[in-house]
Design a protein around this nucleic acid. Structure first.
Lengths: 192, 192
DNA sequence: CGATTCTTTGAAAACAGTCAATCTGTGTGG
DNA sequence: CCACACAGATTGACTGTTTTCAAAGAATCG
C-alpha cells in the first residue's frame, strides 16, 4: 500500500531514501469496506488521508436526512476535512467508502513534522491546496450559472475516469439536483 | 495607501523594517473609479492584489451577457484570478470596482521573491489560500443543499459587514438566482 | 434465490425564470 | 435648483423547470 503512495510522491517531487524512511514511519495504512465510515459527523478529524485504491465520498447530511456530496476521492487523491483539521472543531462532514478502499493516514502532528523536514513536500502540499481552491471556484461558477443539464454535462467532462464507478443518484447529489431530475434530464439528452 | 497594507501585514506576522522596505519597493498602488475594470476577460492576470479601500467584484459573463459573481473583495481582502496567475492562460473572469477603490498590486515574480525572502509571508499566503478553500467548500455545500431563501439568509449572516454596500441584484447573482426572485423571496421573509 | 439498492415513471404541486412595465431614489448637467 | 436620465427594485402574468411522493422495474450482491 505504501508503495502506491511512494510512487505518487516520487512522481511529483524528489525525495532521498532517508526521507522515504521518515515518511513511511508515520504512515498508517487503513482498509475500508464498502459503506464504512472514515469520518463521521461530530468527530474531530486530525489526519491527512491519501487514497491508494478505491473511492470515497465526502458528504453532509441535512436535517431531513438527505446526503449532499461535497467531493469524491479515488486513488491518488487526498481526502479529509480541512476545516476540522485546521480548527480542531468536530466535523460536520462524513466520509465513507463507495468501493472497498485502501488508504494511508498521517496524523496532523506527524504531517507537520514531515513538512518542516522536507521543504519540497511542503511545497507540494501548498500547490495541492491551491489547485483544490481553483477547482472549487470553477465548481461554484458552474453551480450558479449552469442549468441542471449543463451541470451534468460538465461533470461527465471533468470526471470521465470515475463516472462509471459512481451511482447516478450520487452524481445527482454532487451537482445539487434530485435523482429523478437526473433520470429525466438524461432521457432528454439521448433524444438529441 | 501602503500604510493600510502594512497595518494588515504587521497585524498578522512579524516583519523587520528591512523587510518592510523590500515589500514597499515592489508595491504598485492603483486607484479604480466605480465600474472600472481591474481585470478583463481575455487578459492574463499576473498580480497579487490587496484592497486597501473600496470594494470590487469578480465575475464571469455568460454567452447571453448575464454576469455571474464569484466573489466580492472589500478592504483588507485579496483579489485576482489564481487560475490565470498560475497557468498563465488568458482569464475568463472580470474584476471591476463596485465602489471607488484603492489597491496595491504586486507582480507575480516580485511576489515570489518576497515569499522566498520572507518565510513568514509565505506561510501567511498559504494559510490564506487554505482558508479560501475551506470557505469555498462551505459555499459549494450551500449551493447544492440550500433553498434560495436559505442561500440569501446565509449570505446575510456570513457577510453582514458588506451587505449594505452591495446592490441587491448583485447578491442575487452571487447566490445564483434572478433579481426578481430575490425581491419576491424578501417579501416573503418580511411576512414571517 | 431473496434482499437490498438503484433507476425509472407518472401526476401534481411548488418553485424559479422570463419579459415587459412601472416605481423609486440618486445624482448630474443645464 | 430643477428636471431629467439612469440604475436599481418591484410587480404581474405567464412559462418552464424541478421537486415531491408513491409505486413499479432493473440490477447487483451475498
Amino acid at each position: 500500500m505504501f508503495d502506491i503512495f511512494l510512487k505518487y510522491l516520487t512522481d511529483k517531487i524528489e525525495i532521498s531514501s532517508q526521507e522515504i524512511q521518515l515518511i513511511e514511519s508515520v504512515c498508517k495504512p487503513k482498509k475500508l469496506r464498502k459503506k464504512q465510515f472514515l469520518l463521521q459527523e461530530g468527530d474531530v478529524w486530525h489526519y491527512n488521508a491519501f487514497i491508494c485504491r478505491g473511492l470515497v465520498k465526502t458528504f453532509s447530511i441535512a436535517e431531513n436526512g438527505t446526503e449532499h456530496i461535497i467531493s469524491f476521492a479515488p486513488e491518488n487523491y487526498w481526502t479529509g476535512d480541512r476545516e476540522s483539521l485546521h480548527s480542531g472543531n468536530p466535523s460536520r462532514l462524513n466520509i465513507d467508502a463507495i468501493e472497498p478502499t485502501e488508504l494511508i493516514l498521517i496524523e496532523k502532528s506527524d504531517f507537520e513534522k514531515l513538512c518542516a523536514e522536507i521543504p519540497r513536500l511542503n511545497q507540494l502540499v501548498n500547490q495541492i491546496i491551491q489547485k483544490s481552491f481553483i477547482v472549487s471556484q470553477g465548481r461554484i461558477l458552474a453551480n450558479i450559472s449552469f442549468t441542471a443539464e449543463e451541470k451534468y454535462q460538465n461533470f461527465l467532462e471533468k470526471y470521465p475516469h470515475i463516472v462509471n464507478r459512481i451511482p447516478q443518484h450520487m452524481i445527482a447529489s454532487y451537482i445539487g439536483i434530485t435523482p429523478e431530475t437526473l433520470t429525466r434530464l438524461r432521457k432528454n439528452m439521448v433524444k438529441k
